[in-house]
Design a protein around this nucleic acid. Structure first.
Lengths: 144, 144
DNA sequence: TCTTGATGTAACTTTTGCAGATACTACAAA
DNA sequence: TTTGTAGTATCTGCAAAAGTTACATCAAGA
């Protein structure tokens, strides 16, 4: 697995937006908070927009939440932001040898277990919302 | 091969070895079955050996299972073969901005949910053994 | 003892996928 | 019309893993 931090960054962005309420935040501001490039942020917000999680305005615009934070789970974010072939936790190796019966069948043999792992992972992701993450931060920061 | 296929390749190797019984198989033969390089195989079998899953002999040697196939779970393989910092499904982005309260706290806020996802994944991996994978292949190939 | 065939491992090259950066267009609001 | 933003194409740089080559090490058998 490569170190994909897109879920982490997207959660950061959405948590920040949840504190902004109905106000729009620019990709530049978001990029500074995440400590990355504005283009990287725009690529992410673009995907979040496609998934209906945020609204992005051009012109003198920015990004705002399009759904209540408690209605956005990490699974929603994950699905929005992780490209599809990568959305499984593990990869099957390419072109195993077809002349031997292991190579011929290993992919099918691993498909079911890998699918179960994927399902377990997704169910777990669905158990956390952006609201909870924001609440954690609020408690930590404003000590109360 | 971009993403990490080590679990997939290692499972392939172990399934093959489970059919070989007590016989030793060379890294060259394994590499041909997996369709990769013998050195890549040796790097993997080296890690599997460290974890006690296989026995590797030098000289006129090779690799054989060191444990019954039904006593090797995908979690054992995963832990043996995936380097530690990578053993979590998702990564936290580096150096979020410490000047804003989101950046200061996002890592701690995500730690618990990510740990839960990791646990769910590991529990799922522990539910499948090499014996089951081998059995799937046996049934498929020898139609019975 | 010598030969053979295997692993262990170091060092290097190749591949690949992002991240990051730059530059430009499209656009909306004041 | 100006200004500040998103959208996007394109390039570079970088890091990790795969793949390759080469060679030392080792064990078994003739």
């Amino acid at each position: 697995m490569n170190n994909d931090t897109r879920l982490s960054v997207a959660a950061h962005i959405l948590a920040l937006l949840s504190f902004a309420g109905k106000e729009y935040r620019s990709s530049d501001l978001l990029a500074r908070s995440v400590n990355t490039n504005a283009v990287v942020v725009r690529r992410l917000t673009g995907q979040l927009k496609k998934a209906g999680l945020v609204d992005v305005r051009r012109g003198v615009g920015g990004t705002t939440l399009n759904r209540k934070p408690e209605e956005i789970t990490l699974l929603d974010v994950y699905k929005a932001v992780v490209p599809h072939p990568k959305a499984a936790p593990f990869y099957l190796h390419q072109n195993p040898c077809c002349d031997c019966y292991i190579g011929r069948n290993i992919h099918d043999a691993l498909a079911a277990p890998f699918a179960r792992v994927n399902k377990a992972m997704e169910e777990s992701l669905a158990n956390t919302t952006i609201a909870e993450i924001a609440e954690f931060i609020r408690k930590r920061e404003f000590k109360e």
